[in-house]
């Protein structure tokens, strides 16, 4: 053990005490300010399974998303754009999702078509309970990265976007 005089010892004590106070303050601040996750992850009861369309989508505000079908299976999409969080509206005339913020476009089941989004739309877990679809908004599956679409559904008409989005 290295030896030091009384002054060195006291200086060292002060430094450690200061560091300890700083660390405690930083940890407290972080713990106070970090999100506690309240409000997220609610299980939302929605509609009966046979009310979910396979042409077009059904908007459900309580789950902040849309219900639709892929090969008969129900898909619950989160309406938040994976780019920068704008709400992605459904465009009836073209039959796809078109984000007004930066022009990202997704097909009916949320797969990436074009635009600056890094992936397809995120989706929730769905279960059927007592004849009702229950959507777990706490269990989010990230969308697939850009690639081949599994849904063979070309646009049905003009897009809602003003002109060619970036």
């Amino acid at each position: 053990m290295e030896s030091y005089d009384r002054r060195g010892f006291l200086i060292r004590i002060w430094r450690w005490a200061g560091g300890l106070v700083a660390a405690a303050g930083a940890w407290t601040t972080w713990d106070v300010l970090r999100a506690n996750g309240a409000g997220a992850g609610a299980r939302v009861r929605t509609v009966a399974p046979d009310e979910v369309p396979s042409v077009g989508v059904l908007e459900v505000r309580e789950m902040k998303g849309y219900l639709t079908r892929q090969d008969g299976e129900v898909v619950a999409l989160w309406w938040k754009c994976p780019h920068l969080g704008c709400k992605v509206p459904w465009c009836d005339s073209s039959g796809q999702f078109e984000c007004p913020c930066h022009g990202s476009v997704f097909n009916r089941i949320g797969e990436y078509r074009r635009g600056p989004a890094p992936r397809g739309m995120d989706s929730y877990a769905v279960a059927v309970e007592n004849g009702e679809l229950v959507v777990d908004t706490g269990e989010v599956t990230l969308g697939d990265p850009p690639g081949n679409e599994t849904l063979d559904e070309p646009t049905t008409g003009p897009e809602c976007l003003g002109s060619e989005g970036g």
């Binding site: 970090r34 999100a35 409000g39 938040k80 969080g85 704008c86 913020c101």
Partner: peptide, 29 residues
């Protein structure tokens, strides 16, 4: 919407992105 878009950029910070955004917003949105 300006704050929604602006704070969403924080989510792309490597490693701690979601944490950073949630701390900024005090929640998911």
């Amino acid at each position: 919407w300006a704050i929604t878009v602006g704070s969403s950029m924080a989510a792309f910070v490597p490693w701690a992105g979601d944490q950073a955004q949630q701390t900024l917003l005090a929640g998911d949105s």
